[in-house]
């Protein structure tokens, strides 16, 4: 087990390192100007040295993402349970759920900024729309995947719907719910950034637009590095919480 884990880590590190080296060498050999594509060493240095500049922006973006996740949780979980309890409604609601994903949120982003303002609200809203879907869909499919035999057993006990939900369906659905949440938190960063590009006063997306306009390409990339780290961190955090809660897997 331990050596397997070491191996996967080594492979991941190796691939990342090769990519960096090719990038670094390529930029140096072909003499690419820094404002077109800075070498990874420059980006790393900027990400560290400019940390005091990037930090407040990162905090804003993180807050937007976390608020979006919270909003998605308090809406998606009840909706999934509601749809599970009423299969007729599930069939009726599914088209709308899918439609909410088919509508290009990115195209709507400018409108949302007009409606909800330049502040955090519009970004939280976009993040919410994006995360909401995977959580609802995975939780619903998790709830529905419960074995018939267990349902019969609980019916024979005379369990009410909420007793079944609490003792049987909900724990049963947790692994799928977490896989949905993990997808959700990683794509949530995209939602927040799109919102910030369109119009914001703060945030990593805002910083990227500003730096791009000033040809500070290294800062653009530094912001991307921070953003990636944030997405990765959230992914790991969800995985950690899952491990703590879903101990029987």
């Amino acid at each position: 087990m331990g050596s397997d884990r070491f191996k996967t880590n080594a492979i991941a590190m190796g691939i990342a390192l090769c990519f960096m080296i090719i990038w670094e060498m390529g930029v140096k050999i072909m003499d690419v100007p820094v404002f077109i594509l800075p070498p990874p060493s420059d980006i790393a240095l900027t990400a560290l040295v400019k940390a005091p500049v990037i930090w407040p922006h990162a905090l804003t973006t993180l807050a937007e993402i976390l608020l979006g996740i919270c909003l998605a949780l308090v809406t998606a979980v009840p909706l999934a349970i509601f749809m599970f309890a009423n299969p007729g409604l599930e069939r009726g609601l599914t088209p709308f759920l899918v439609a909410s994903q088919a509508v290009p949120v990115f195209a709507l982003a400018p409108l949302l900024v007009v409606w909800l303002g330049y502040g955090m609200a519009s970004k939280v809203f976009i993040a919410w729309i994006i995360i909401f879907f995977p959580i609802t869909v995975t939780l619903l499919s998790g709830l529905k995947s419960c074995d018939q035999e267990f349902r019969v057993l609980f019916s024979l006990m005379g369990a009410t719907f909420f007793q079944k939900l609490h003792l049987l369906y909900w724990p049963w659905a947790l692994p799928e719910f977490f896989s949905g949440l993990r997808v959700g938190v990683t794509v949530a960063t995209i939602g927040a950034i799109i919102g910030e590009w369109v119009g914001a006063q703060k945030g990593l997306g805002y910083l990227m637009i500003q730096s791009n306009a000033r040809l500070q390409t290294d800062l653009v990339f530094a912001a991307i590095v921070w953003l990636t780290a944030m997405g990765l961190g959230l992914w790991i955090l969800v995985g950690y919480i899952e491990k703590k809660i879903v101990r029987w897997r």
């Binding site: 035999e149 267990f150 005379g158 003792l167 724990p171």
Partner: peptide, 16 residues
């Protein structure tokens, strides 16, 4: 339902 207990081949114990 409500009158009989039931046991089958699978133990149907919840892992959590």
């Amino acid at each position: 339902r409500g009158h009989a207990a039931y046991m089958q081949q699978k133990d149907l114990l919840l892992p959590w």
